[in-house]
């Protein structure tokens, strides 16, 4: 871990100005992913801005009937919030499927969205990785790829996004509120937050330099039955091989987002039109263009079968 200076920010403006003032600065909140990566020098900030004091730790109703979730709300608190449990069960379920109890106590809403891939080649600094070291190549391609992306990947990167929470956020059409160093704020639809790898896998989100997530807003509840199914070898404390989050209405329509298969939460709105026709039809559209490896081709069947189970469960 490289040496860094540390400050506590006491206002969003102070945080933003610190980010601009100092080159190579990073915000830190929960720290559960950032410190992990800093120990390996995959992340090497020279200045840390502790944003835990900014007060973004509330969950509040919005005038539109939704919920505004402060960026610093811990995963445990978000999953346990009564309104979330009642109206956004998918989100609670996704959160509770992730990490472990003690990690969820620290990990924040914004940090969860921004967590980086678990590709083992990304984590091994002896190996080439375009995400870690742009232009160095991708050791995962042609290597051990059981966990890697089957769709939306590129010749530069086949990593997946590891978040469970983000799958729910994507299905719920959350929006992300940010504060930029110039004092402006903006709303980013969750669909536009994460990027596909393309030729620039090191660019994982559309956030600008020094841009700070301040909250995530959920639109008013959709109703329906919420199901999140995470498939993994070990029963807990493991990243998904595949996860399926779905909101299913009485008439069989609904929404589906899938984790563990792409560089970002994977949702294809056109595929959702097929929901009344069943999992096979949905999966065919959802996975159209998939390019699995020999190691991970099972994920195609697994998505379809898991989705079928989810739809069955939603019917009750």
């Amino acid at each position: 871990m490289r040496s860094f200076t540390y400050e506590k920010a006491h206002s969003p403006a102070a945080a933003a100005s610190a980010a601009v003032r100092t080159s190579n600065a990073k915000f830190i909140a929960g720290g559960t992913n950032l410190l992990d990566l800093m120990k390996l020098e995959i992340e090497t900030p020279s200045h840390l801005i502790d944003v835990n004091g900014l007060g973004f730790d509330k969950i509040e109703p919005t005038p539109e009937g939704g919920l505004r979730i402060g960026a610093l709300v811990r995963n445990t608190a978000l999953a346990a919030d009564e309104r979330v449990r009642r109206d956004y069960g998918l989100l609670s379920r996704a959160l509770l499927a992730g990490a472990s109890g003690q990690l969820r106590n620290k990990a924040t809403t914004a940090g969860n969205l921004l967590q980086r891939t678990r590709c083992p080649y990304f984590y091994d600094t002896n190996q080439p990785c375009n995400k870690r070291s742009p232009g160095s190549g991708c050791a995962a391609i042609g290597g051990i790829t059981r966990q890697h992306a089957v769709i939306g990947a590129s010749d530069a990167c086949i990593a997946t996004h590891p978040s469970d929470m983000a799958i729910a956020m994507r299905a719920l059409d959350a929006t992300v509120q940010t504060a930029r160093p110039d004092g402006t704020t903006r709303n980013i639809p969750i669909a536009d937050l994460h990027r596909l790898p393309g030729n620039t896998p090191h660019l994982e989100t559309t956030l600008g330099a020094g841009e700070l997530i301040t909250s995530v807003t959920l639109p008013k509840p959709l109703g329906g039955t919420h199901v999140y199914r995470k498939v993994r070898d070990r029963a807990s404390y493991a990243f998904a091989l595949v996860s399926v989050g779905a909101i299913v209405q009485r008439d069989g329509t609904g929404r589906v987002a899938v984790g563990g298969i792409a560089h970002k939460p994977w949702r294809v709105e056109a595929a959702e039109a097929e929901m009344p026709r069943g999992a096979k039809a949905v999966a065919a559209r959802l996975l159209d263009g998939a390019k699995p490896t020999r190691d991970n081709s099972f994920k195609l069947a697994l998505v379809e079968r898991t989705l079928a189970a989810v739809l069955t469960e939603a019917k009750g």
Binding site: A139, I144, A235, S236, Y237
Partner: peptide, 20 residues
Amino acid sequence: RTGFFVNHDLAGYEVPVHAD
């Protein structure tokens, strides 16, 4: 290709947890 155990940490090398 390069001769190493790729999953060289406790997140990559899964051992049973309580729930198993």
